[in-house]
Design a binder for these strands. Sequence first.
RNA 1: GUUCCCAUCGUCUAGAGGCCUAGGACACCAGGUUUUCAUCCUGGUAACCGGGGUUCGAAUCCCCGUGGGAACGCCA
Length: 461
Amino acid sequence: MSVVVRFAPSPTGMLHVGGARTAIFNYFFARAHGGRFILRIEDTDTERSKQEYTDEILDSMRWLGLDWDAEPIYQTQRFDLYRSYVRKMLNAGTAYKCWATAAEIDEMRAKAQAEGKKPMYDRRFRDFEGPEPAGPYVVRFKAPLTGTTIVHDLIKGDVSFANEEIDDFVILRSNDAPTYNFTVVVDDVEMGISHVIRGDDHLNNTPKQIMLMNALGMKVPHYAHVPMILGSDKVKLSKRHGAVAVTNYREEGYLPEAMLNALVRLGWARGDQEIFSKADLAAEFKLEGCGSSPSVFDRTKLDHLNNHYIREKSLEELSDLLKLSYGVDLSVLLATPSSRKLFEALRERAVKLTDFASLASWYLDNNFVRDEASMKEIVATTPRDALDALAGKWAALATADFSGPKAFEAIKETANNLKLKIPQLAKPVRVLLTGTLASPDLGIVLEALGRDRALERLRRI
RNA sequence: GUUCCCAUCGUCUAGAGGCCUAGGACACCAGGUUUUCAUCCUGGUAACCGGGGUUCGAAUCCCCGUGGGAACGCCA
């Protein structure tokens, strides 16, 4: 059977972590099974849907490298199709018009709840006959009253719902717009979707959709409901957990590779493997690897992965990426073997791409800021003649001879001559040259800076 | 409230009845390397929600509790 899957975001907000994970599962399921991955924009809520959100979602998808196989389908352009199906059901008697007002429905729900049942519509117009009342109406599905609907879920197993639990839900609003549960059914079938892979929060909608498909005589696709992603407080991840939009992470300096890897491991595993490339996943992603319990999204793991993928990038790639996406120009570090060594050292410690700017600030800008506390506690307590002696030694070296080992050797000699321990001199030097105690290997720093800049900084107290 | 789902280290997870004195990763802690921080290396702390079954044997199967989550809309 040919595999066709879809990712169906509604453009009422940015692509968030949960949606991205669903998209990722769909995408790799399609790739691993030689199937198609289609995008469907569920914009039937014309009040809240915005083009800018659609643009943002597509942009995030591209950033993650999730390319789709056909032009996205917009539900608002298919209203005629949905309405034709509504008419079909009206004619077949599997749907009916309902004139109940909002107030009446609220009353019914309250009543049902008081009786210990789910809040439900009481089907008062289900068998209504005679002259149609004036005023607006909705179209409701004539849901089966008895029996059981079973969802054969590829992740959860068989889940059964008593049909009496499901009310005659609305399929066409009074403004003539079809509702979600209806458009999904029409589209999933019309688009030939073979596997519906979506969030667990839709599991309760699935029996409704299956019922509709049965009423329409349609073939039911396979379903797979992936567990929710939770915040650290264990409730469904949402805006109040802080950064949840994929774009936020991109702006913060995360790599798409890291995001992808982190997200795919949420609710999915393949033995003990932790690192997954796009190619790995496209080859071996299987629904069988999906777990069934929800998972907490952990930023520290993402940080670790991000550092991992930053280290895998070449200096050239990094430089381009930094300039293009973050406006940080480190191309000067590409120039010489010495500066490249420094760049490599920085790459090792950068957790986010945005870290590079501060990591390299002392190198890029001669007016870099020195840490005041370190200046006071370390530099100020260092004998001035030691620094002067060191300056003399450095000055005696030819510019071309100012290699890391030689420049550092000068520090050692000076320290020894003055009966200082090496760190006693190395630390203040580090602060003077880089402004902080946390910088790459001093040899690398010295060589990258070169004799004259190093000397100038050493003397500038 | 009702329905449905879920339950292994702090977190992500491996585990499909004996391979489990429960493995890996992140985080954390300690030691080593080092001129600092970090990296790197080595080691360590840390979990099968509880109770009943089934079985020679259960983290794994069943039941009941408990806890958590989701859904119940003319939102999607």
